[in-house]
């Protein structure tokens, strides 16, 4: 390995270690709330209401919603980790440590993204453990399950990074999650199958990329989905390329970090 690549690898490892240390240090803010959140959904929708609904697409309702609730944790926390970490680095100015160091932008992006993935997967795993109190999880397609989870986490880490790059004040990193991300997630088929919706709403729902991710994950775990799995992978791949390209472009131009 060339000297340069070796340096980049060390820088990448350093960045990932730092990112993981950050959310572990404040685990009460980063890991506990999403688990409590998931627990409440499982109790209310699965335990209380779910006993009335019983089945969705021929699947016990509790089993149906578990994949979506896991993915909700993955999505929100991947996004939130990178947006607040990057924004915090800008606000406290320690992003300058990276800018003055010989670290390439692709390594900076990769470091933050893997940090977000680590948080997303940690939350996903914890939520999965909690849902074991209510039902069993035996993924039908384990590889697809893991792949969809990791790729979705990368997608939303990238989105969080872009948010962090543009953010200038604290509000800026809560507006997008509250007004865009949350609706897309809740309407992304966590609690119902879109095939049950009136045709107009089904068509509209299918424009929501989150739907493809949650269904892809549900396919991995239960073998059931509103769409073929290749569609899920295509949508995720498309967004990773698009958001990755945008993030690199912003950093290369110094948008949000250099004047």
């Amino acid at each position: 390995m060339s000297h340069h690549l070796l340096n980049e690898r060390v820088a990448f490892q350093t960045l990932v270690r730092k990112e993981v240390r950050r959310f572990m240090r404040i685990w009460i803010q980063t890991l506990v709330p999403p688990v409590i959140n998931a627990l409440l959904y499982l109790l209310i929708f699965g335990g209380l209401i779910g006993t009335r609904i019983r089945e969705m697409d021929g699947i016990p309702y509790m089993d149906f919603i578990v994949p979506g609730i896991i993915m909700m944790g993955v999505i929100t926390n991947s996004y939130g980790n990178v947006s607040s970490s990057f924004f915090g680095a800008k606000m406290q100015k320690y992003i300058e440590e990276l800018l003055v160091s010989p670290v390439s932008n692709i390594t900076i992006v990769a470091g933050f993204i893997i940090g977000g993935v680590a948080r997303g997967l940690a939350v996903g795993l914890l939520v999965a453990l909690v849902s074991l109190l209510f039902t069993q999880i035996n993924p039908v397609h384990p590889i697809i399950t893991v792949l969809v989870m990791v790729l979705t986490s990368i997608t939303f880490s990238l989105a969080g990074l872009i948010n962090g790059i543009f953010a200038e004040k604290f509000d800026d990193i809560s507006i997008v999650p509250n007004f865009i991300l949350a609706p897309l997630t809740y309407l992304g088929g966590i609690f119902y199958s879109v095939s049950l919706l009136p045709p107009v709403w089904e068509v509209i729902s299918r424009l929501n990329p989150v739907l493809y991710m949650i269904n892809g994950f549900r396919y991995g775990i239960l073998g059931a989905s509103d769409m073929p799995i290749w569609q899920s992978f295509s949508v995720i791949a498309f967004f990773i390329c698009l958001l990755g390209f945008i993030a690199m472009r912003l950093l290369n131009r110094g948008i949000g970090v250099k004047q």
Partner: peptide, 8 residues
């Protein structure tokens, strides 16, 4: 040590 790491 973070900055050391960024410098390879």
């Amino acid at each position: 040590t973070n900055v050391a790491g960024y410098n390879g």
